[in-house]
Design a binder for these strands. Structure first.
Lengths: 204, 204, 204, 204
DNA sequence: GATGAATGAGTGTTCATTCAT
DNA sequence: CATGAATGAACACTCATTCAT
């Protein structure tokens, strides 16, 4: 233990909040800001949503946001990245084996469930991702997450003896995008469950 | 209307111009502005594209744009509205009869063709529509155009004796959205033709 | 003459201000802004002087400044560059010959005269140049102007048979800097004329 | 005061510290802050250097600085004032007698030596003083220190029977300023020693 | 009809300073 | 004595919009 570090630990005794207390404050604030950002970015758009608006919604001062995020872009990336982890968690583990029909159906069911239960979240999330300016920022991350899913599906179609498995895989991806988008835009009337069943029946 | 003819009408300034000549000038200017706007809004975004940029691309002064459009928003709405007419023109006339299978396939082929041939245009167009701020402005118009198409398809599926024709219709709409979107984002690699064939084979 | 250019010239007939009128407005405004900037940058400092302050002093809006200068830095460079031209004009033409004693004395007299007659200007100017942040921006320009002067003096001292002409030249430059600086800081009490005479007597 | 001794005093926290121990801590902290400030203010500038940066370099928290200095301005004044004492220490004691030639030369040698050995320090110091905003704060102090030096030199020139001793004195001061400034701006190439010799030979 | 100088509210961002702990 | 989260006023810069000509 060096002299410097001794001094430091002694000094910390003097600081009134413990490191843990500070961490809790920071975690809480960070989450608040990200939540406010998520809601506003989705409702309006990236460019239309100002840092001022986010601060107001979060109930804090403008300046404080910069205590937690280097700049607006970093905040956006943080919000979107956090959303990706949800996606990633849902991808089934296959250990190199192609998915069975049941596994794929289960994956689709999970996806649709998340769509409905975390509706608010995904609506916001979806409309953020749709904006070209954001795409630039997260293109690579998105690709890194999407490619494995597409491959998983291509493997599935191949194991089913389908003629053009890659085309089928990309089509399935496109269909999911389209369904999500339509559901987001009009959740009241869009017959999500019926459509899920048609999807499974015709495309799986 | 060509530059030559514009010149002519301008040169006739000495002798008083007819009302029609004025109108021609106005129409030509308006079209120029809208074309410049379409290109820039798509390449960048609505918020990132300034009136100055549009004026420069259109080869006119900033102020003149306000002579033709009340404000930026009105310009956007005009551009998007014009784009809708292309959509509308593609919808087949059925005189109350449901579409035949061949007619529907033909409609799908037309749609996909437009997607590829006017790719630049639709890419721009698509990215404009995707922005929430714009959606607010044109939601009603969009609905007015989309509903007839969905109804047409529902009628088709009903005539084919499908159990849940409305769900099928909305799903087809969703699939077309998803395919368009994926094609727009990655036109190089997206197997559009293969997917169109799969779609027709499995879903029509 | 192309169609485009014909259109343009016809259109210009319609614009109410002639190109020359616009140029006059621009020249005048630009000068006003630069004058306001010069005064404020000198009285305070580059960092302390805000664009708002300059706009207020110039009696215009903040935004208009950016109609004339790309950014704050460009404004600074413009102001300083303009000042350099005064310097450059004072350097005597020698056609390769070293200066005579009379010529050098005349140059010094001119320099000192400018210091006193354009006192306000040089005070501002000097204190701008003295600031490290500005130096970075104009270092190259400054060197390009100063080196010829130093060489001229080195040539002079060499022609006088002085042992270390370059050292003498740089010292003369340093002395002039020191005198200017002291005069600027305390023009009331600094005995400029006496000192000029001492300088000429001892050092030329 | 070394880190070791700081630790000791900190460790004695359990037993009440003497007033002296508190003072030592305070003195040590104050010096640390001022040193950090000096380095940063010089490397960057007053406006560019933030309290945060100083705190980080000093290894303490932002808030603590305000425990030792009322505000940023007070910190600057403290740093500059301390620097002046170095100057003051170099002024030779004359007990009312004018300096001898040897004493003056010795003083000049000392000044030049300090310029080169504590180069880093003076460079920083010089660039701080050069900023108008700082000048406002310390003008009076500067005068209080400079006047005695000028008087000393005036006395010297008078004792040498020079016609206008005050002008000579102020000129010598100006020359020293000019030399320092030029050396600071270009220490690699500026022939400091040669120039010092020329100065002594011609002006002493 | 056409121009572009001019405005002013807005943006993202920084930072000296305060204060609860 | 010490911390760092928090504030708010300021900054450089942008841009839709207006208007005298």
């Amino acid at each position: 233990m060096t002299d410097r570090s001794i001094i430091k630990s002694l000094q910390q005794k003097m600081s009134p909040r413990t490191e843990q207390q500070y961490n809790e404050i920071r975690e809480h604030r960070k989450a608040t800001i990200m939540q406010a950002g998520l809601e506003l970015f989705a409702q309006y758009s990236i460019e239309t949503t100002s840092i001022s608006m986010i601060a107001k919604r979060a109930g804090i001062s403008k300046g404080l946001i910069y205590n937690y995020f280097d700049n607006k872009e970093a905040l956006i990336v943080a919000i979107v990245t956090e959303g990706f982890e949800e996606f990633t968690r849902m991808i089934p583990e296959t250990h190199g084996q192609p998915l069975s029909k049941e596994q794929l159906i289960h994956y689709l069911n999970t996806t649709f469930d998340v769509l409905t239960t975390d509706f608010q979240y995904w609506k916001l999330y979806f409309s953020i991702v749709m904006q070209p300016a954001v795409m630039k920022l997260i293109e690579d991350q998105l690709m890194a997450i999407m490619m494995p899913v597409v491959m998983l599906m291509a493997d599935y179609y191949e194991s089913q003896g389908v003629a053009n498995p890659m085309a089928h895989a990309r089509m399935l991806g496109a269909i999911l995008d389209g369904i999500s988008l339509n559901y987001m835009l009009d959740p009241e009337n869009f017959p999500l469950t019926d459509i899920k069943n048609i999807l499974i029946q015709k495309f799986i």
